[in-house]
């Protein structure tokens, strides 16, 4: 049985003449504990799929199931205890006036936990930040530290699926390595299922076992990482993408 399944997903913005189809007829399955990648160029609709799954974009049709349960248009609170998301830009995803403690504390409170203090401590340790960062504000943190806080926030609910929207593209390469390692460790420790969006094939290849290639709102090909490494792609667009990025 799959942990997350998306069938014939369509997502659009606007109405009538202004309607733009951001995702057209996308279908894929992610097994429990698997790590699945979505790659494509900007505007191909890969991030929009994540936003539709989480309910941040309300205009979608098709079927989304999480752990065998159909996801309704209006998300129930329990949905967010299963599915969480990490955003692309850590400089934009933390409230500028809330300290790390406030961000994590509020999240834990919303999920109905009682032992908030102990959990904040544990979350900070989990993401490798430690206690000295607890009362800092976002402007006192580096990009990598902010992204760790964002990951801690996503983990606070103890979710089973983590949606990662280009989690390292705003970071330096050395920091990217640290965050990717952290994600690897967390997946092993907590048995998480990942869906990762990225434009960087090497990053997706490092994290994911299977990936979908998107172009112009459609999934053109789903392949496994071995084919990616061997540069065996069927669709001409995937081949072009591989050529362009492996050139280095």
């Amino acid at each position: 049985m799959s942990m997350l399944s998306v069938e014939h997903l369509n997502v659009w913005f606007g109405k009538g003449h202004n309607r733009v189809d951001a995702v057209t007829d996308a279908s894929f399955d992610v097994a429990p504990g698997e790590s699945f990648g979505l790659v494509g160029e900007s505007g191909s609709g890969k991030s929009t799929i994540l936003r539709a799954i989480t309910g941040l974009v309300p205009t979608w049709s098709g079927r989304i199931t999480v752990d065998g349960q159909d996801v309704a248009k209006k998300r129930h609170r329990s949905f967010y205890k299963t599915v969480q998301m990490v955003f692309q830009d850590p400089y934009a995803s933390l409230h500028p006036r809330h300290s790390v403690d406030a961000v994590l504390g509020e999240t834990l409170h919303l999920h109905g936990f009682r032992d908030i203090d102990a959990r904040v401590v544990r979350l900070l340790d989990d993401v490798g930040l430690g206690q000295k960062f607890r009362f800092r504000f976002p402007h006192q943190l580096s990009g990598g530290q902010r992204q760790r806080v964002a990951i801690a926030r996503a983990l606070a609910a103890e979710p089973r699926i983590l949606l990662l929207d280009e989690p390292t593209s705003a970071l330096d390469v050395s920091v990217q390595a640290e965050i990717l390692n952290l994600l690897t460790d967390l997946r092993a420790e907590h048995g998480l299922t990942y869906v990762m969006v990225s434009h960087d094939l090497a990053v997706v290849g490092h994290v994911c076992a299977r990936l979908a290639v998107m172009k112009d709102s459609r999934i053109v090909e789903i392949m496994d990482v071995d084919s990616l490494r061997a540069k065996r792609a069927n669709h001409p667009y995937s081949q072009e993408l591989l050529r362009n990025s492996v050139g280095a």
Binding site: T54, L56, R77, Y80, Q84, M85, F87, Q88, D89, A92, S93, L94, H95, P96, H98, E106, T107, L110, H111, A150, R153, A156, A157
Partner: peptide
């Protein structure tokens, strides 16, 4: 902004988002 999206994903309602965020 992303931080409002993020708190919505924690199940926060509009009142909390307006007053606290």
């Amino acid at each position: 902004s992303d931080y409002i999206s993020a708190i919505r994903l924690q199940g926060a309602g509009p009142m909390r988002i307006i007053t606290k965020h």
